[in-house]
């Protein structure tokens, strides 16, 4: 049976404000030169935002375990693809 979701509107507004704040942070950080940390910081913010959207707006937080497992499997495969692609990009032109 489908479960009813117990998240109240106040939480949705808070999460939305959090997403707006993180977007602002992304824009602000784009102006700074963080060298090799740039991609890591951008990805960290994006990951946090994705987690908020998935957990609250997509109700994953209150869903059954099987969906959480699906999502984790998808993320692991996606990360593996990114890492394997970067094995090419990072080592293609070795530093002299």
């Amino acid at each position: 049976m489908e479960k009813t979701h117990s998240i109240n509107y106040g939480t949705y507004v808070l999460v939305w404000l959090g997403l707006v704040a993180l977007t602002t942070l992304t824009v602000a950080i784009a102006g700074l030169n963080l060298y090799s940390l740039t991609i890591i910081v951008a990805m960290a913010i994006a990951t946090t935002k994705s987690l908020l959207v998935a957990n609250y707006f997509m109700h994953v937080k209150s869903d059954s375990r099987v969906f959480k497992v699906f999502i984790v499997v998808c993320i692991v495969i996606f990360l593996t693809m990114i890492i394997l692609t970067f094995f090419d990009l990072i080592f293609r032109y070795p530093a002299k």
Binding site: L84, F87, D88, I90, F91, R92, P94
Partner: peptide, 11 residues
């Protein structure tokens, strides 16, 4: 194609 040696070994 010219991908890195590291990734060629891994793949």
């Amino acid at each position: 194609t010219g991908i890195s040696d590291t990734s060629r070994a891994i793949f």
